[in-house]
């Protein structure tokens, strides 16, 4: 029942995919169960890295796990 918190940073608003499922957007706080996930962004594929493998645990709403995608040139 306890939740963990994740923010995927990106210069633009883009949909976030968790294990292939659309789940909110970049730069907003996502609430998920703890555990291992693969995080990437929706198209277009102009971001880097391609994906993050994260182990989401020990976060707090005020201290979410922050991962940052940058715009690929």
């Amino acid at each position: 029942m306890s939740k963990e918190y994740l923010v995927a940073l990106f210069p633009r608003k883009r949909r976030v995919l968790i294990n292939g499922q659309f789940m909110g957007t970049t730069n907003t706080k996502l609430e998920l169960e703890s555990g291992v996930y693969e995080v990437t962004l929706g198209p277009p594929l102009n971001f880097s890295p391609e994906k993050f493998e994260i182990d989401l645990r020990n976060t707090a709403s005020l201290m979410p796990l922050m991962i940052e995608f940058t715009e690929a040139k």
């Binding site: 294990n19 499922q21 789940m23 169960e33 703890s34």
Partner: peptide, 21 residues
């Protein structure tokens, strides 16, 4: 067949106490 998104990576010995597991 593709398992539901929450299933992938959920069964790990270290996670056995979680509801996702």
């Amino acid at each position: 067949y593709n398992a539901p998104w929450w299933y992938k990576g959920a069964i790990r010995p270290a996670s056995w106490t979680s509801e996702r597991y």
